[in-house]
Design a protein around this nucleic acid. Structure first.
Lengths: 148, 148
DNA sequence: CAGAATCCGCAGGGATACTG
DNA sequence: CAGTATCCCTGCGGATTCTG
């Protein structure tokens, strides 16, 4: 038997998501866990890239969101923006030291995604099957003895 | 052909976010990168927990979002839901094998968040400082040659 | 206690047009 | 080419209420 609640895993230890550290996790996760940040980090892990190159490597992203997310990441000190005074203009983005430290954990997550995609897809199908079956049974037997 | 662009990191290798694998990453990231999933995974990494216990361990979360996210994770096969036929009702949630494999990568990300929170905070302040300065210079010198 | 259902505000983010 | 500005709409998610 265990005393009511077991202890959380190492990274959450002592925080239980309730202290400053807990809020820090939430804060960073909100930043890094948004729709595009990790994709940009992952793409930039290859090295310096231009704005257009980034856009073409991240299919779904719009000009607007690429710009906004890049600004955000630049503000957080995860990448640098270098505008060359040329015409046509050329702007290059590159991960900073801090940004590069994010490559490992984010890659781990990406690897997990690839590894488990089929497992998850299967689980979803199975869940939807039984969920639909349960719904049908409720609809049939729920409204009292004889449905027909 | 496009030898101008360096190759992405291992997990993205061959995918460039453009193939099925790329979409898989996006897909999983959308699921796992939402506001609460990783927090729930992290909390459940300690072991089986009841609905109420989960809620009290994840401060900001509402009943609604806890339920919704739990359903989502259950559907993805990352956790199991066990409803005990008692009164008052008792429902327990526990990570599955697949769910537990997500602990490591997500913990890594959380650890990164804690490690770099001060660095990021500092970067933000610095960025905002120079951004404000730049804006002021534009406002002052923008309409004429001598700022004063 | 665990949750389903409803209402609703608001921010994320797409499409488009314009600029330097 | 690399943005910026604007419009607009979807859906995330909080607060509240009702059920088993």
């Amino acid at each position: 038997m265990m005393s009511s609640v077991p202890t959380p895993l190492s990274a959450y230890e002592g925080s239980c998501l309730e202290t400053d550290e807990g809020r820090a996790i939430r804060d960073i996760l909100d930043r890094v866990g948004d729709k595009w940040s990790l994709l940009i980090i992952g793409t930039l892990s290859a090295g310096r890239l231009r704005f257009g190159e980034l856009q073409s490597h991240i299919p779904g992203i719009s000009q607007r969101m690429l710009t906004l997310t890049l600004r955000q990441l630049e503000r957080d000190g995860l990448l640098t923006r270098t505008a060359h005074a040329e015409v046509p203009p050329r702007v290059e983005y590159e991960l900073t030291e801090t940004g590069r430290t994010l490559i490992e954990p984010s890659t781990a997550l990406a690897a997990w995604a690839i590894t488990n995609q089929s497992l998850i897809a299967a689980a979803r199908e199975a869940f939807d099957q039984t969920a639909a079956a349960r719904a049908k049974r409720r609809a049939d037997g729920g409204q009292r003895s004889h449905p027909g």
